[in-house]
Write a protein that binds this DNA or RNA. Structure first.
Lengths: 142, 142
DNA sequence: CTGGTTGCAAACGGTTTGCAAGGCA
DNA sequence: TGCCTTGCAAACCGTTTGCAACCAG
């Protein structure tokens, strides 16, 4: 966790502040593993008696993203989704029935894949998206 | 190509019609391999002296999608993108500099991956998205 | 006090919808 | 002629932006 502290220090040095919303978002994303949309964030915050305007949330999420605290993913519809980025690289299993989101890790397999693509196509890969859709264990058996 | 003809016949039997826009879209997507957004489609059609209202295009694209002629993918921003679906399953290499889109195929590798996930998680996978981002050969060397 | 941060309202961009008019079979 | 399809305009929804007020350092 000292990496996090270092980054926070660096913020302050650059003139940024620790506000109510910012603190709330950081702790929310540290305890929440699923990728959240803005309205999901709003309801999560409401439970903690914290209200924040959508525009504030977007600004804050963009800030935390450029500061590498959060990363953004594209899942289903047109909504932006964010999740804590100080974790191992992973991918999502999106259940089309209950809308639940699970996670899988598969670094080695993909590293191989990317290498072979770079060789075959001369394309320098810097990132990728990989999400799976289907039915989770519960919904499958229901 | 008889698969296509069969589907067209089936349409007519169900009361659908072959209109100017529909024909234009079909031939456009058959000759165009890249996934297109609505405004890209509009300019492609304009070159052929065909104009179509965005709402018409969306309706038509949704129709062609539910009829399994087109499939929809999510690449970069909030724009919907469609491509011809009667082709082998493949994925995209999106160049972040020139915005060009290349393709790769990698069925076997992914089939394996999916199997191991289904076993490990009990999650029944019905589809997935996999897109790569980076620099194409040209942009990399420039 | 200073300038990063906020809420509000308005603008924005892509997409969707209601409805009356148009055109394929 | 019947009804699928179209264009138009307005609504929609998530997101972005300008601006004045606010507040952490």
């Amino acid at each position: 966790m000292h990496l996090l502290e270092k980054l926070l220090q660096d913020w302050k040095a650059r003139g940024h502040r620790m506000t109510k919303t910012r603190t709330a978002l950081l702790s929310l994303f540290m305890e929440e593993t699923a990728p959240l949309s803005v309205d999901e964030i709003e309801t999560r915050l409401k439970k903690k008696r914290i209200t924040a305007n959508p525009s504030t949330l977007y600004r804050e999420l963009d800030f935390l993203k450029t500061e590498n605290f959060l990363s953004e993913i594209v899942l289903d519809g047109p909504k932006r989704r964010f999740e804590w980025s100080h974790r191992e690289h992973h991918h999502h299993l999106y259940c089309e029935k209950c809308k639940g989101i699970e996670e899988v890790e598969m670094d080695n397999e993909l590293a191989e894949l990317q290498l072979s693509i770079q060789k075959k196509k001369g394309f320098k890969i810097s990132s990728h998206t990989l999400e799976f859709f289907g039915l989770c264990k519960n919904c499958k058996n229901a």
